[in-house]
């Protein structure tokens, strides 16, 4: 007799089937989740003059939404974008290096994604130089200005709790905002990107300019964010570091089921299957 047929009325069979179904569902969900969008093809970049080259890149990749002269455009239901005059090189570097721009799919918010292939440090620099030339604005910070090793994590932690965690959560795991917007996880953000985000206030994020939160204080915050990110979880798995929701889930799904399995084993009676 087929062994599956024989065991399908085993007391544990239904749990096994349930488990199988759940894991299948999870697998399908993971497969169907949208992956990183691979945008258009590479484009050659001129070496002569950063601004000129940047203008060329801008015309090719950005102008359709932001207008030919970065003055912004608005088309209801179509490609719209804000004016980029005065946003500064820091904004360009943040948006393009994190893959948020060019904004491929319409949605409430531009998600972080893998940048298209034409994006590399050189082209980002050219594009940034062009936008900077239009009306100034915050510039890209030097590597030293964002070096976590040079910041004071304890001071940064206090500032982080005062200014950032209400949206990004206490370790920067992110959180929900209104109308489908969200504060992204800080996990993949580089120190430079964190600095640029504070200085420029991308999308819904407010601006923390250098005169109210000084560059040193920003570096302290970066030191805290990066430090906590690399800090091991001394108590075991961090459970996503989002607090009691996952803890409750683990208590029910992990703890309680283990104990119920133990109870079933303790009280189980030996059943002898009668093969006929």
């Amino acid at each position: 007799m087929n062994s599956i047929t024989a065991r399908r009325r085993h007391p544990l069979a239904r749990y096994a089937v349930l488990l199988l179904a759940l894991s299948l569902l999870g697998g399908v969900y993971a497969l169907l989740m949208p992956g990183g969008d691979r945008a258009d093809a590479a484009i050659a970049s001129g070496k002569a003059d950063d601004v000129a080259a940047g203008k060329e890149l801008f015309a090719a990749h950005c102008a359709s939404c932001h207008g030919l002269n970065a003055e912004g455009s608005y088309a209801p239901g179509g490609a719209s974008g804000p004016s980029l005059i005065g946003v500064g090189a820091a904004a360009v570097d943040f948006q393009v290096s994190s893959g948020r721009m060019p904004f491929a799919n319409p949605g409430p918010q531009a998600p972080r994604k893998r940048p298209p292939e034409w994006v590399n440090p050189e082209t980002v620099k050219q594009l940034a130089a062009y936008v900077q030339s239009l009306g100034g604005g915050p510039t890209k910070p030097s590597l030293e200005a964002v070096d976590p090793a040079k910041g004071d994590p304890a001071k940064g932690g206090e500032l982080f709790r005062a200014n950032c965690i209400q949206c990004h959560n206490f370790v920067g795991a992110g959180g929900a905002l209104t109308y489908g917007k969200y504060a992204p996880s800080l996990e993949p953000a580089t120190p430079t990107q964190i600095y640029e985000a504070m200085a420029t206030g991308p999308q819904a994020m407010p601006v923390f300019n250098d005169s109210t939160i000084t560059p040193e204080q920003k570096r302290d915050m970066i030191a805290y964010i990066v430090g906590v990110r690399h800090e091991p979880n001394p108590g075991g798995n961090g459970l996503g570091r989002i607090g009691p929701v996952t803890e409750g889930l683990v208590a029910w799904v992990g703890g309680l089921s283990l104990l119920i399995i133990a109870a079933i084993w303790i009280t189980a009676k030996k059943r002898q299957v009668n093969h006929d």
């Binding site: 206490f170 929701v245 803890e247 409750g248």
Partner: peptide, 26 residues
């Protein structure tokens, strides 16, 4: 194996601050 209530990550209490996703125990 499962970290619970990592208070060192939350920081000390002040009524002026709060974290996103603040939840009570289940």
């Amino acid at each position: 194996f499962a970290q619970i209530n990592p208070i060192w990550l939350f920081g000390p209490y002040t009524p002026a601050d709060i974290s996103a996703g603040s939840q009570p125990d289940f």
